[in-house]
Nucleic acid binder design. Structure first.
Lengths: 337, 337
DNA sequence: ACGTAGCACTTTGGTAAATGGAGTGCTAAA
DNA sequence: TTTAGCACTCCATTTACCAAAGTGCTACGT
């Protein structure tokens, strides 16, 4: 499929106009821009429709871009936009605030982007289930309560409160922790609970008097690390509602419900999986979140792990601006890590 | 305002019917139930409307309860319902699962309630800014990265990754931590950063060589505890979308938007503040969340802190059932803590 | 004094018809 | 290859209309 210059220009005009107004674009409005008559435009439009790049909402309506049309626009027509001074300024104040941890900086800056664009921002933390245990700490709180803290090699920290059925002398606890530390360090976090069961349990029961109650306490604590999904891949959502102001949703209660439900589910995590390290754009059915939206996302790496940031918006997203914004954040993350 | 028996019965019937059907209740449907003619019912209805307990949606519609009507119903008419076997069974399986931490049990059981009722569940953790520091741990990750972990007297754990600009010998770090521990333990968490500035800084700079870089690292870490709202009062939301299926919202895109926006804001935390320890019901304008909803909430206390659980639903909430459900959870929390 | 039958009146909600406007496709001419 | 012109299509909005549901009020009976 090859487009000549005029067809290219026409597609650009239609996509950008539709992105701006959310209304089907008619031939008349375009004549002046391309310096020819509406009939000519109509002919070209018909051709673009034949190519699958445009669609009509009904037989005599103006044209709107098809999914393929957006894709063509993004791949071949659009040029990433320069960030406006205003946008940049807002983000700059976040990144230049040294008292924020990088992680918080990322979350905060995605919040800003969400406000700026009125799309929904998603920040997916790293998947700690692949991390390996690097240290276990135990802090006694009072007679029969402990806090167990697990630190992984990538700096991920998990903790659990443990209530023991009986009081156990500190010395016993210390010994147990030492044993566990020796055996568990280096184990991927999602294998810990089975390793506890089959390797640690036999040994503890040999060396420790109150092994029953202690083992149970630790087992419960660790068992949780694996099963608690929300801790495995922490994520932040911001701006769920901005979204709903987009005209294509604003009057359609069913669509709103459908999309809000999807945000409500924790499946976002799985539908926003990261891929290669560039900025990836998934338009409509290309993403596994919802056919009516575009997901644009990118991976980032920081000293202590990696993650994904994403924006979810309507298919008629301001692609050029969003790419510039994400790119800016990505660069700043790299610089700061 | 005093109601005779028939008026009382009538209000009960109207409220419960409206809760069930979401449709204005007409006089004819009631005659059989109260064994009198529709005209009589209409007279009584007019009286209840005069009292402010009922409303009409238009001049010739049936009646719906007013806010005051719901309030009267809840205070004077409704009897808390027995839990059905089915509801109880579902919750029982959560509470009898010993491998879950109590905290997770609470969250899980509120999720169940959300599914059962199709209202939105909120779990507010305890406000750790009032906790006092009970211990500070530091785990070195590699040459210039540390993890600082702060444990409070109520078992709350916070942690931050710290990147130091230069490498600092372990011995220096150890000494610093010891000093900080001595000075900070017992300090409320939201006062830590000022105490660091004015009491700890002078002392560190005396005893520790690389005090500049170390102080900065710790200061940044602690400064965050106070400023990061989401960590201060952690909360979980479940079932935002269930809500939207209620008939009074289902066709009103504006209302949906309005309420979803409120869930999106973190203001929920402030609008769901706990009060006394019973089960509190806030109907419509009585709550600070939204005039179109009822918020029903209760405080719970557990070994390592306290929190609030709440349900947000339409004003025509199944009050009797919801109260029974919350009460059941509350009792189980008390039993298990 | 209370209850009720009857009736006129109001509002809603749904369906049908009428109308204007925006936009297309096609044809024929430049 | 472009364009003017025209017939046609579909949408959106307005208007009209009707049945259903329900009310308030009046007048009558006990």
């Amino acid at each position: 499929m090859v487009l000549n210059k005029r067809q290219n220009d026409l597609l650009k005009i239609i996509v950008e106009d539709y992105i701006k107004t959310a209304r089907p674009v008619g031939s008349k409005a375009i004549c002046e821009l391309l310096d020819c008559s509406s009939a000519t435009i109509r002919n070209e439009m018909a051709y673009l429709e034949e190519c699958g790049l445009l669609e009509k909402t009904h037989t005599s309506s103006g044209r709107i871009p098809s999914e393929k049309g957006y894709r063509y626009y993004v791949d071949n027509i659009m040029k990433p936009k320069e960030l406006t001074g205003e946008d940049m300024l807002k983000l700059q104040t976040i990144f230049s605030n040294n008292s924020l941890m990088l992680n918080d900086t990322i979350i905060r800056s995605m919040e800003i982007i969400s406000e700026l664009t009125s799309y929904t921002a998603v920040v997916l933390g790293d998947d700690s289930s692949l991390n390996k245990v690097s240290k276990i700490e135990v802090v006694p709180l009072d007679e029969n309560k402990l806090i167990t803290i697990v630190i992984t090699d990538k700096g991920h920290v998990e903790h659990r409160n443990v209530v023991m059925e009986k009081n156990v002398p500190m010395e016993e606890i210390r010994k147990t922790v030492e044993l566990i530390n020796n055996l568990i360090v280096g184990t991927p976090i999602d294998e810990v609970s089975s390793k506890l069961e089959f390797e640690v349990k036999p040994i503890i029961s040999q060396y420790v008097k109150q092994h029953e109650v202690l083992y149970k306490a630790f087992y419960n604590a660790f068992n949780n690390f694996a099963s608690d999904v929300s801790h495995e891949t922490p994520f932040k959502l911001k701006g769920t509602s901005n979204f709903l102001n987009e005209p294509e949703f604003s009057n359609d209660a069913d669509k709103i419900r459908k999309i809000v439900s999807k945000f409500d589910d924790n499946n976002i995590v799985s539908s926003i999986k990261e891929e290669d390290s560039g900025i990836n754009i998934y338009i409509g059915s290309e993403n596994s979140f919802d056919d009516d939206v575009t997901v644009i996302k990118t991976k980032y790496k920081v000293n202590d792990g990696e993650g994904t940031i994403a924006l979810i918006g309507p298919k008629r997203m301001e692609y050029d601006r969003v790419i510039a914004l994400l790119d800016y954040i990505k660069q700043n993350i790299d610089k700061n890590s």
